[in-house]
Design a protein around this nucleic acid. Sequence first.
DNA 1: TTGTTAACTTGACACTGTCAAAATAGAGGA
DNA 2: TCCTCTATTTTGACAGTGTCAAGTTAACAA
Lengths: 197, 197
Amino acid sequence: MSKEKHHHGDLREALITAGLDLLEAGGPAALTLRKCAALAGVSHAAPAHHFNGLVSLKAAIIARGFRIFARIMEQHRASAAPGPRAKLLAICQGYLAFSASHAALFRFMFQDFGDLKQQINDSVLNELEQESTHAYQVLREACAPFAPVGGHEHSTEVLVWSLVHGYATLFGGGKKPKTPSGPVPDFAQILPDFPLR
Amino acid sequence: MSKEKHHHGDLREALITAGLDLLEAGGPAALTLRKCAALAGVSHAAPAHHFNGLVSLKAAIIARGFRIFARIMEQHRASAAPGPRAKLLAICQGYLAFSASHAALFRFMFQDFGDLKQQINDSVLNELEQESTHAYQVLREACAPFAPVGGHEHSTEVLVWSLVHGYATLFGGGKKPKTPSGPVPDFAQILPDFPLR
DNA sequence: TTGTTAACTTGACACTGTCAAAATAGAGGA
DNA sequence: TCCTCTATTTTGACAGTGTCAAGTTAACAA
């Protein structure tokens, strides 16, 4: 039942954090089952008893990433000025802060999300769906005051999510982002003005 | 000078197209130097004389991807109704069409773009910069009529690029895209109305 | 203490990228 | 025609990867 027993204290957790470290240190190519095992101090085949192969470990790492992702957005929202516009902007800046502070993890999450979901039948899939949905809800709540009343109630959240995700993907990584034709404006300058519902 | 000589007609080209096929068939994990070589009918070490390792082949594949990308956007623009708004929307729909018809390539391009650029010192880097810049120019031209006159002249193109890229990444892949809370509206419904300059 | 089961190790296999050395084909000059 | 000579390709090897099978060890229950 409890995970604190046997040789290693909590190998499953150690493998996930080892994977996060490897990912941030050396990119996706450095995320290796054997390196995770070595970093956790166990033999190369030990992870097989906690994860259904490499893809399951990757899925667990992505799920952990979504948890960190949601936490950072919530922290930004907590320290925002009052008002729906300020809260929405804070959430977006949390989004961008995560994509910058966890650049490799951020790209890894959205790159392999779709591919991985079809390769795992674990309980990991459940955890992954849960964490990613929660992260989306954080952004969705911030968009709710701006949802249009007519037919397309999701259009604002889809717009904001697409906008901030594209911005993070294309320009968020580098310290001084630029297009081929010039510097990139701040995100606050491209976020449209939405009418309150 | 010409590439049509020696054993294989044009091995470099054959390796790139083999890589494109493998990528679309089996995802990024299936893109392998040895498989590319086998698909081109040469031995496993033959690619070394045309590409400075696997990363260079990947960079060449991405460069080719940007060329296809730009071509598809230009085709959509050519068959668009007159008027700057229709042309901009057509470019975006070309963007989305590419991300759907070349899903694996699209994700591969923007995932490894940044990582790869720091690992190649080839002439491939030149080709990659050139093709990607050209693709960006296509989108930039379509945004030009809507560029604001004040200080932030790039804000519209950055907005549109972020928006369409995020939309393609998050919702473009699946046939019936949906958020955790409902169906996704068409892109035309979330593209804001920009004032003409 | 004994037995049982989960956790882990050891060893092996096919596959990967990369390197060194050998072999081969094509072109240009005698 | 023959003969270099260089670019291209092949063969062979190496370390590293994920995964499987079998053996070993540790923790706990009876």
